[in-house]
């Protein structure tokens, strides 16, 4: 029982980790609090749903949804934030602008697609499961973990080992100095928007698969959870976001299994509050460090 809970928690947690990764990338590199991020999560899930409804296999629906969610992120970032960044508006301005935009986008989405919970077509995933000793892990769960691991490794090696990744980290610290090095910071920002939107979208597909429930407002609760996770992980800290995502997934599963599923959604925030009492920089953050 305990082992199975932990496995289930790690599966959900790996999707949380992916979601948090995109959020911390967006926050850390672009330096704005962008609440539209949860919208890409919902967009990704719906696009995969549409693609699957049209007969696409998950191997096509998932990347397609992620890429389109990434493009939506580029467009929204451009429309909402270019001007604020250029005038170096205070963070509260980007918070309010993106909050307003998000409310609008969720409403538009509900009006367009209906607000009822939708499900992926039966048979999208193989119903099989593997036995790991006494435990069960389904094909869907393997897909979720596999995708999350692959995308996280991809992002980590992009950030650590490529010229673009280096420029992203430089931009996170100091955009003027990056320009002086010859970095086209606007172009790098577009790439960061795309990547984070795609990660958010992919996470939306994975969570949609795990719980088999998709609704326009699914991104809202997830955004809050995402912020809790990246603060736990230490803002802008990629490894921290991954670890905190897994941790919250496992704690949620344990809470649902041993306490009550009523408290499941709250456990991440409880952990956050307790952590911030003891370590204001988060579980994995360095004191004083703010960005990746």
């Amino acid at each position: 029982m305990l082992g199975q809970q932990i496995i289930n928690g790690l599966v959900a947690g790996s999707a949380y980790a992916l979601f948090a990764l995109g959020l911390t990338l967006m926050f850390g590199v672009l330096g704005v609090v962008n609440l539209t991020y949860g919208f890409y999560f919902a967009v990704g899930a719906y696009l995969a749903l549409l693609a699957a409804g049209a007969g696409a296999p998950i191997a096509l629906a998932l990347p397609l949804a992620a890429i389109l969610a990434g493009l939506v992120a580029v467009v929204l970032d451009f429309l909402l934030l270019t001007r604020l960044r250029r005038t170096r508006a205070p963070e509260l301005a980007s918070l309010m602008v993106t909050l307003g935009a998000t409310l609008f986008l969720y409403s538009a989405m509900s009006a367009l697609l209906g607000s009822e919970i939708r499900r992926f077509p039966a048979g999208l995933l193989d119903n099989g499961a593997f036995a790991l000793g006494a435990y069960r892990i389904s094909v869907g769960q393997i897909l979720i973990v596999g995708t999350a691991v692959l995308l996280s490794l991809g992002l980590v090696s992009l950030m650590g080992a490529t010229r673009t990744g280096l420029a992203m980290r430089a931009l996170a610290e100091n955009s003027d100095a990056s320009e002086l090095m010859g970095v086209d910071t606007q172009a790098i920002m577009r790439r960061v928007s795309f990547l984070s939107g795609a990660l958010g979208g992919a996470a939306g597909v994975l969570i949609g698969l795990e719980y088999n429930a998709i609704a326009p407002y699914m991104g809202e609760a997830m955004t809050l959870k995402g912020f809790a996770i990246i603060i736990l992980g230490g803002l802008g800290n990629i490894g921290g976001a991954l670890a905190a995502g897994l941790l919250v997934g496992v704690l949620e599963a344990l809470t649902a299994g041993y306490v009550s599923s009523v408290y499941k959604e709250a456990v991440g925030f409880l952990l956050l509050v307790l952590t911030l009492w003891v370590r204001p920089q988060g579980l994995f953050g360095r004191p004083g460090a703010r960005r990746a």
Binding site: L166, R169, E173, D176, A177, L180, A292
Partner: peptide, 8 residues
């Protein structure tokens, strides 16, 4: 003020 990338 140097403006080096302190985290790198």
């Amino acid at each position: 003020g140097r403006q080096i990338f302190g985290e790198m």
